[in-house]
Each structure stands twice: as C-alpha cells, then as structure tokens.
Nucleic acid binder design. Structure first.
Length: 698
RNA sequence: GGACUCAUAGCUCAAUGGCAGAGCGCUUCAUUCACAUUGAAGAGGUUAGAGGUUCAAAUCCUCUUGAGUCCACCA
C-alpha cells in the first residue's frame, strides 16, 4: 500500500471489474426483498452537471440495501428532452449559420437523433465515473420503441376514459421557438409595461397592450360602477385608427373599479382573462396576432408588423389623432416569458390536446394523504398537495419535431380526430382512409411522467411484478410539480398502483457563496473536473457531508479537499494494519497472552462504541438521514478510531500483539462496510487488498 | 397577495427537546511514527431580537427585523 491513496489507480479498474462481474444486474429473487429506484433520466443532450451528481443519494441507498441483503435494482435511462434538446440543437445549428427551417421534418429528426445518441453515451460514461450502481443491461431511452408504445397506450386509455380532449383554447406560445407550452413552463417576470390611457368611444380604457385593440370584441365595466351604468348593454362606436368599430359594453364582476379607468377592453383571443370573459358572454374570438408574432390582415395597415413595432406605431398614431389621453410610463406588471429563450410569450388561440387533470390529481392526492406515498423531507408534502389542488388542465401538444409524435389522426373528409396506437385502417364514420397524423409531439413530461412503470413493463412481467411499485423516487425538489406529481397521477392511472412508495427530494447545488450556478456568471463547476482532481469518492462525500436533506447546498472545492483528506485517513488506517500484519507474519511474533488489564478495557470499550455506532448508523440510514449518518462515521473513524484507539493500541500492536491487531482490523472492516455506500471506490480498493481480491459489495 | 425556507464561530454550514459542533481559515507546538492530504493544544458563540411553553429550548409556540425561493389573471 502506498502512503497516499491515489484514486486514479483504482476507480476505473474497479468499475470495470464490477461491470465484468455483472454485480449491477438485478434479478427476480423471491427469497429476497426487492429494493428499486428508477434513475431520473438525464437529458441526452449535454454533459452531466453537479445536479446530476446529487443522484449519489440513490447510489447510497442502493448500496446500503444491497449490503443489507436486498435484491436491488437501479435502472438507468436517458430522456430525449424534446424541446430542451431541440433548442440546444438549434443553437448548434446557428453556429453553422443554419436554422431548423433549412431541413425537412424527417431530416431534422434524424440529425437530432444522431446528436442525442452521441451525447447520451458520453453522459452514461460520466455516470459510471461517479461510481453508480446502475443496471446498465436494463437501460432505457424515452424514445425506445417499446416505451413509445406504452406512452401511446396510456394516451389512448386517457382518451377513451374522457381524460384527453382537443380544444381551441388560449395557450402560451413562443413565437420565436414556434411552440406552445403548459402553464408550468411559463416564467413570469416583472417588466416595465407603460400603461396607455386611450379614448375608447365615449369611454376611456387603460391598457398595456394597445396593439391588441384590433382584436377587441367588447368593452367591460363593473356592474356596480355608477359612472358607467348607462352604457351597460349599449353599443358604442370606437375609433380604432384603421376604422371605426361598434362594440357592446358588457358588465362583469372581473373588472376592478379602482384600476385604471374602471373600463376594460376585451380581447378574447389575446388575453387569458378576456378569453374567459369572452366565453361567458359568448364573444367572438378575433385573432389579430399570428403564430409568427406579426399582426395579420385584421390589423389593416399594421399588418406584417411585429407586436412591438405595431405597438409603437399605433401609440404614435393614436397620439396624432388625439386618442391617446396619457401614459403611465413607470407601470410594472408580470409578463409570461419563454423559459428557454426569454422572449415574451403570446397568449394565442390554438387547438391542442389537453389532459383533464382534476380526476387524476384527486387520486394522487389520496395516495399522498394516505401515506401510500411518503414524502421526505416532509415539508414537501404540503407543497405537493398544493400543486395537486391547483393544477390546470395540461396542454401536452408541442409544435416541435423532436419528440414522440402524437398518435392522433385527422380524417380529411369528416374532419374528425381519431386517437389510435397504429394508423387506423379506415375512418369509423366515412369508411375512407384519408388520414393525416397530428404534426405535434408530446410534451416531454408526458413520457417521463410514465417512466417508472413504462421502463419496468418493457423488461418483463416478472420484473415488473417484483420491483413495482418502486421503493424510492429520488430527485431534485425543483421538479416536484413537473415530474413527481405527474408520475403519481399517470402512474396510478396506468397501473392502479402508486409508481413509488417513497419520495426523497434533494436540494439545489449552488456555488460557494450561495449563488445559482450559471454559464454567464462563470461559476459552474464540472463534476468531472472534481473527479479528475480528487477522485469520485471525495466529490460524492462533499455533496452529502454537513448538508441538510432537501436543503440547497453550497459547493466548494475546499470541501472536496477535506473529503479527499478523509479518504486518505481511511486508507492510512488500513495501511497501518497492513504493515503490521506483514511485520507480524515476518517475525512470527505471537504475543497472544498479553494480560494487560488496560488493553482488555480498551478493547471492550472499542467494541461497545462500535456497537452503538452501528445501531445509530442503521437507524439513520433507514430514516433517510444520510448526512447525519456520514457525519457519525466520519467522527467515529477519524477522531475515535484513528486519533484515540490506534494511538492507544499502537505500542502493543507494533510489539506484535496479535489480539489487539485482530480486534482493530475487525472494527476497521465494519467501518469500511458502513462507509461503502458513500465512498464505494476506496472502500472496495482496501477491502480487496485484505480479502484476497474479493469484492466488498458482491 | 399566498405559501415555504433560512438567520448558529472570521467564512460555508450541521446539530429532528438533553454537555453548542464540523469543514476551511487563525495561534502555538510536534516530523526516525499509518497518514503533513498528519497529530497535540488553543483562540473564536448572549444560537438575529423580544416574549411564551418546559425540569430542560438553537430546537416547540407568538411577534418583530432581515435574506432567499416558489406560486398568484389586476387590464
């Protein structure tokens, strides 16, 4: 044994051996209890970041339960990450002076497929570098044919049960990215939006979006507002610059008398509130902004202008015509923006597929309330329940190429939609076969929301029955509504069982000063660099040590160094034993009869302490308090075993006291087993040196 | 506007009602020693503030102050 532990001499070799010996492969073994985790599938479009390294919690659980004698399965996979990936790929295209419009659908899809396959294997290599106990033979991809088939089946089943509907509604649409989103994906930002007070026939309205005036189909006041009572149900004539238009004044409680002038122009096609009001009062939906972000023919000579240009020009024209009364320049409101490109989203009317959430959410809520799914740390339970109560119907249509194409077919003669797993042979109504498949693809979360059962179902019935519901779902708390909640809803719908029994949520990795890591700040730490410098074990330990479960963690290289030092301490305790074993056998000094009372006492004390530590360790591990558990072993192995006991026993051992050495080794090996889930490489490396190259974990 | 989290050593953070701790940094000493990626000793705290519950509070409750996160249709 060298004086210092050098991870580079061991890590890769050990992982290769684990692979060769097939220790990761999970089998159905009825004699054992199953313990299963499905790895949150990383996006197959980029390198791993420190957030992914947090899945070390899963490795800790898997290895711990493996050592406890469970049959463990940790199933790896990759997510095609529809819009995310297409966005990354388009950026890549841009560097080559190209865009998505330069390719046909099939061509673009194939190019992204190749791009993803390259990145996916890189990402998988990085998971291996972290030492993860993943059953690679079972790895899945969200676009594997068998997975897609299950996704289709779920969609069909939802449709057949009336939980999927197609409707023209307002959706949040990014005119730059060319797709709609679900409500969850909208990022609201405070923006300065000048509030324009405009002469509106005999009335006056206040609006931040004057350019939508061409889509106005009514004007609303509060029924209790005395100022405007006489106008209610009357028609007024409004000068819209391009022409004069007659509009009805409606009364609606939604109007806040105190805001602006107390008069609201109603644009059902371009505002979510107005859409609802329009539905209530049966108003016409008059779309004046197209999906390319430009105004259309209904805007007269403003046609062809982008929204911002049109607003500027219209305000100018209103001013010239004396229709602009005043402008509140410093007005601030919240505007929905695209979470990827940051541009302002347009609410636009579009026919899309929606999932009716409330029946699904109701069941999911029951499972959580009845603790059939337990949430750790428990404060997230409340948050999850809040979400389950507040979900809106889920728009799952995306106007992008990279994704699972929606299995819905449009009959050109009857103009009816059919949902079918395969291309229907003929239309049920007209008997013809003249179909067009929906161009849209599913929201990525629709497929990843089915991940726990879909992956296991494709393996075999035995495996599914044995490992499902999975034991734990471990992921970052930031995707609780996006992923965890939807997995519960879809998982229960499809299998009538919860997809997992426990949810364990970890926090976000920030930089040393608590700042969010981002490329623009230049504070991003690459986990692979840390592994290269200090070893995977040191990195893993630094993500767990001294961190509160579910709390955000400030990552610092200093901490990794501290953990590297801890690894070295473990190594050198082993080295001490190793050197003395050789010395003893060489000189055959067998001082078995040491009757030193002091020694007996010391050994008894050590045994007692170890027993207590083991008990605490087991309790903490089972309660998902991994950080506490690690802290316990750290404290014991360094400051008790190394600093105290080894120092006390040192003289005896060097003088050849076999009993003292044996006792020390015994305790040391127990410690190695306890640390193994946290630091698998070094513990395995040492174990093999002492146990004739046998593995600790297999 | 609603919800949640947080405030503890110089810095970053643990401590799940029972002697206030760790990592890094700082001071002094130690190197034929398993390890200087080390060891020993030490400095450093009114646990944000006020009140309450308790034999016992950093921890539970109430309020105040400050920081952060998520959510919400005010045109």
């Amino acid at each position: 044994m060298e004086p210092k532990y050098n991870p580079k001499n061991f890590e890769e070799k050990i992982y290769q051996e684990w692979l060769e010996k097939n220790i990761f492969e999970a089998k159905v073994d009825k004699k054992k209890k199953p313990f299963s985790i499905i790895l949150p599938p990383p996006n197959a479009n980029a390198d791993l970041h420190l957030g992914h390294a947090m899945y070390v919690y899963e490795d800790i659980m898997i290895r711990f339960y493996k050592l406890q004698g469970f049959e463990v399965l940790w199933l790896p996979g990759a997510d095609h990450a529809g819009f995310e990936t297409q966005f990354v790929y388009e950026k890549h295209l841009k560097t080559q002076g190209k865009s998505r419009f330069d390719f046909k659908r099939e061509e673009l899809f194939q190019n992204i497929w190749d791009f993803v396959m390259k990145n996916r294997s890189k990402m998988e290599e990085q998971l291996k570098k972290l030492g993860f106990f993943l059953d690679w033979k079972k790895k899945k991809f969200t676009m594997d044919q068998d997975i897609v088939k299950i996704v289709y089946q779920t969609f069909k089943k939802l449709y057949d049960r009336g939980l999927v509907y197609r409707e023209k509604k307002l959706v949040n649409y990014c005119t730059f990215c060319g797709t709609s989103f679900s409500d969850l994906e909208v990022v609201y930002k405070e923006k300065n939006s000048p509030l324009y007070f405009i002469k509106y026939g005999p009335l006056e309205v206040a609006t931040t979006r004057p350019e939508t005036i061409f889509g106005d189909t009514a004007v609303a006041v509060n029924p209790k507002d005395k100022r405007y009572k006489k106008y209610i149900n009357q028609e007024i004539e409004v000068d819209m610059v391009i022409k004069k238009v007659k509009l009805k004044v409606i009364a609606d409680e939604m109007v806040d008398m105190k805001f602006g002038t107390g008069v609201v122009k109603i644009t059902p096609a371009h505002d979510f509130n107005d859409f609802e009001t329009g539905k209530k009062h049966k108003l016409e939906l008059r779309q004046v902004i197209n999906f390319d972000g430009k105004l259309n023919e209904l805007a007269g000579f403003y046609q062809g202008l982008y929204v911002n240009e049109a607003r500027k020009k219209l305000v100018e024209d209103l001013k010239n015509k004396g229709l602009l009364i005043k402008v509140k320049e410093d007005y601030v409101n919240r505007v929905g923006t695209c979470y990827k490109c940051g541009r302002i989203l347009e609410p636009l009317p579009k026919e899309q597929w929606f999932i009716k959430i409330s029946p699904l959410a109701k069941k999911a809520k029951e499972l959580v309330l009845k603790e059939e799914i337990k949430i750790y740390p428990k404060r997230f339970k409340k948050i999850l329940i809040w979400w389950l109560d507040n979900f809106k119907d889920w728009n799952i249509s995306r106007q992008i190429v990279w994704g699972i194409r929606i299995p819905a077919y449009y009959c050109q003669s009857t103009k009816k939609w059919f949902v079918s797993i395969d291309l229907p042979s003929k239309c049920e109504v007209c008997g013809e076969n003249d179909f067009l498949q929906d161009e849209d693809t599913f929201d990525t979360w629709f497929s990843s929301g089915q991940w726990p059962f879909a992956t296991l179902m494709t393996l075999s019935e035995d495996i599914f029955n044995y490992f499902y519901p999975t034991t734990v779902m471990e992921t970052g708390y930031d995707i609780l509504p996006w992923w965890v909640a939807r997995m519960i809803m879809l998982g229960y719908f499809a299998t009538k069982k919860p997809p997992f029994k426990n949810v364990f949520l970890h926090g976000l990795v920030r930089d040393k000063y608590g700042q969010k890591m981002s490329k623009s700040k230049g504070n991003v730490v690459n986990p692979m660099t840390m592994i290269e410098k200090y070893g995977a074990d040191a990195l893993r330990l630094s993500l767990i040590f001294g961190v509160k479960e579910g709390g955000d963690l400030n990552f610092s290289e200093e901490k990794v160094i501290g953990m590297r030092n801890f690894c070295n301490k473990i190594w050198n305790m082993g080295r001490f034993i190793y050197i003395n074993q050789i010395q003893n056998s060489k000189f055959k000094i067998q001082n078995l009869k040491s009757k030193s009372q002091n020694l007996e006492k010391l050994i008894n004390q050590l045994e007692k302490e170890l027993k207590e530590i083991k008990k605490k360790y087991l309790r903490l591990m089972k309660e998902y308090r991994f950080s506490q558990s690690l802290g316990l072993i750290y404290e014991f192995s360094w400051h008790r075993l190394a600093d105290f006991y080894i120092e006390q026993l040192k003289k005896e051992i060097i003088n050849g006291n076999i009993k003292a050495l044996e006792k020390l080794s015994e305790v040391y090996f127990e410690i190695l087993k306890m640390i193994h889930p946290f630091a698998p490489f070094i513990t395995e490396a040492i174990w093999k040196i002492f146990h004739n190259q046998k593995s600790l974990i297999s």
